[in-house]
Design a protein around this nucleic acid. Structure first.
Length: 423
RNA sequence: GCGAUUGUGGUGAAGUGGUUAACACAUCUGAUUGUGGUUCAGACAUUCGAGGGUUCGAUUCCCUUCAGUCGCCCCA
C-alpha cells in the first residue's frame, strides 16, 4: 500500500457524520441574518498582505506572527485571510458600496487562516461567521450587532453564555488614557514581563490584558478607560448599555477587556462560554466598533461595527453543553429487489420514487434479504419496499412500514402516491 | 514559536525485547430455501503513525519526523 498522506497540521475534515450539524448552523445563521436584514458578501480567501498589515495592524499577533503568507508566481505577496473585517471593508471601498445607500449591513461565512500551534478550539484553518454594519454611528446599531449574536446562540439552545462588554473610547479619550497608562507603568516597567515591556511603547492598553502580570500590584490601580472618556464617548457607551438593557440582554462590563486588533474603538465585546470545564478557548465571539478603518483603507470616513464568531468553537461548546440540535437523518424508503429481474425493476421503482421528491436507497452489495433489512435500519428508512419475482409478475410490491412493522401489498403504479400519502 | 504528553485493526482500547498481538463494539457471513433492530456460531491487524539506528531478534530500547491532546502566548 502506498504511504498515506495526512492533512496539514491544524486543519480538519468535516465528515458526513458531522455535516448535518454544520448545515444546520449555517442555515440558522442565514435565517438570523434575514431577520436582522444583513446581506451576504463573499470575498476572496486570499488578499494582498498589505491589506491586513494596514487594516488589522502591523503590531498585532495576528499579522506579526500568525499570517499564512506566500509569494505567488507573479511574485505578489499574498496572505490567506486571518479574519473577515479587513476583506469586507476592502470590498466595500473597492466596489463603492457607500454610494448605494448610507448604511450597509453585511455578513460573511467561510474559512480563515492563522498560522498557530493548534490545540482544541484553535486551528490553522477555521470557519468564521461575521457581520459588519458600515455607515452608522448610532448606539442602537451597536446594540443590534450584539443582539444578533445573542439571538443566534439562544435560538440554538446554547446556555451558559456570558456577554462581556467594554468601551475603548474615541481617539481623544484613548490618547488621554494611553498617556496615563504609560505614566502609571513606566516606574514599574522592570517588574513586568518581557511582552509587557514592549507593549508599553507599542500598545500599553494590552498590558491590562496580560495574564502573566495579572497579579502585579500596579494592575489593580491602573487607570481605567472609563475615567478618561470624554463626554461624547461616555454618553455613547451608556446609551449602548441602556439599549441592551431595554432589549433584556444581560451583560457584564469588564474594564480590562481589550481586543487584539488595532482597529477597534468605542464598543468592544466578547461572548464567552461560562463553563469552567471547557478548556482554554472560551471566547465564542468577539467584535467591536472600528470607526476610521474605512478611511484607513482608502474609503470615505465611515463608521463601522461588527463581530466574528467561530463555528468550530461553537460546535465544541454545543457538544460540551450537551445541546441537541433538531437534526433528523432519515430516508423515506429502502427498495429491495429479489432476483435478477426484480432487482432491475426495483432500480426503476427507486428512480421513480426519487423523481417524485422522496429519498430512497437500494442495495448495491448483493446482500441477502435479511442483510437488506439491516441496511434499511441503518439508514433509518421509514419504509421498505419488497419486490420479488412473484410481485413483479403481478405488478405489485410489499410496502412495509419499518417503524410500525406493518405491511401492505400495493400496486406498482400506486406506490409513489401511497408513500406520499403516508408521509 | 516554547514546554509536557500521546500515537496498536473501522472504533474504543490490553500487551510483551523472541515461535499464534488480548478483549469489547462495529462490519460481514450463517442458524434450512423471501422479512429487520434480540440471541448463538464463525470471519475480520504478515502488523503495532512514518523513516532510520541498536540487537541474533523490536510493536516493545534510541534518534528523527509527522500528527493529536494539554499548558504558555494569543485569539474564533
Amino acid at each position: 500500500m502506498a504511504t498515506t498522506i495526512q492533512k496539514p497540521r491544524g486543519t480538519q475534515d468535516v465528515l458526513p457524520k458531522q455535516i448535518a450539524i454544520w448545515q444546520y448552523i449555517e442555515q440558522q445563521l442565514r435565517e438570523t441574518c434575514t431577520r436582522f436584514n444583513y446581506k451576504e458578501i463573499r470575498t476572496p480567501m486570499f488578499e494582498h498582505i498589505e491589506l491586513f498589515k494596514r487594516g488589522v495592524g502591523d503590531t498585532t499577533d495576528i499579522v506579526s506572527k500568525e499570517m499564512y503568507d506566500f509569494f505567488d508566481k507573479g511574485n505578489r505577496h499574498i496572505a490567506l485571510r486571518p479574519e473577515g473585517t479587513a476583506s469586507t471593508v476592502r470590498a466595500y471601498v473597492e466596489n463603492k458600496l457607500y454610494g448605494e445607500t448610507d448604511i450597509q449591513k453585511l455578513y460573511y461565512l467561510g474559512p480563515m487562516f492563522r498560522y498557530e500551534r493548534a490545540q482544541k478550539g484553535r486551528l490553522r484553518q477555521f470557519n468564521q461567521f461575521g457581520i459588519e454594519a458600515l455607515g452608522s454611528f448610532d448606539p442602537m446599531i451597536d446594540a443590534e450587532v450584539v443582539a444578533l449574536a445573542m439571538d443566534f446562540y439562544q435560538n440554538l439552545g446554547l446556555a451558559n453564555i456570558k456577554l462581556v462588554i467594554n468601551t475603548l473610547g474615541d481617539l481623544e479619550s484613548r490618547l488621554a488614557h494611553r498617556q496615563a497608562l504609560v505614566a502609571h507603568f513606566t516606574p514599574v516597567v522592570e517588574e513586568l514581563c518581557q511582552d509587557c515591556q514592549s507593549r508599553l511603547e507599542k500598545n500599553p492598553l494590552r498590558i491590562l490584558d496580560c495574564k502573566v502580570d495579572a497579579k502585579h500590584p500596579s494592575m489593580a490601580t491602573a487607570p481605567k478607560i472609563i475615567d478618561y472618556l470624554n463626554d461624547e464617548s461616555r454618553v455613547y457607551f451608556e446609551t449602548v448599555l441602556a439599549t441592551l438593557t431595554q432589549m433584556e440582554i444581560p451583560y457584564v462590563v469588564d474594564p480590562t477587556l481589550v481586543r487584539g486588533l488595532d482597529y477597534y474603538n468605542h464598543t468592544a465585546f466578547e461572548i464567552m462560554l461560562d463553563d469552567p470545564n471547557f478548556g482554554a478557548q472560551t471566547t465564542l465571539c468577539g467584535g467591536g466598533r472600528y470607526n476610521g478603518l474605512v478611511e484607513q483603507l482608502g474609503g470615505p470616513a465611515t463608521p463601522g461595527i461588527g463581530f466574528g464568531l467561530g463555528i468550530e468553537r461553537l460546535i465544541l461548546a454545543l457538544e460540551q453543553q450537551n445541546v441537541t440540535l433538531p437534526i433528523t437523518d432519515q430516508l423515506d424508503v429502502y427498495v429491495m429487489g429479489l432476483g435478477a429481474n426484480a432487482k432491475t425493476a426495483s432500480a426503476k421503482l427507486l428512480n421513480q420514487v426519487r423523481q417524485a421528491g422522496l429519498s430512497g436507497e437500494m442495495d448495491y452489495q448483493g446482500r441477502g434479504m435479511k442483510a437488506m433489512f439491516k441496511a434499511a435500519n441503518r439508514v433509518q428508512a421509514k419504509y421498505a419496499i419488497i419486490l420479488g419475482e412473484e410481485e413483479l409478475a403481478n405488478h405489485v410490491c410489499q410496502v412495509k412500514n419499518l417503524v410500525e412493522a406493518t405491511q401492505e401489498t400495493i400496486a406498482l403504479n400506486d406506490v409513489v402516491a401511497y408513500l406520499q400519502a403516508n408521509q
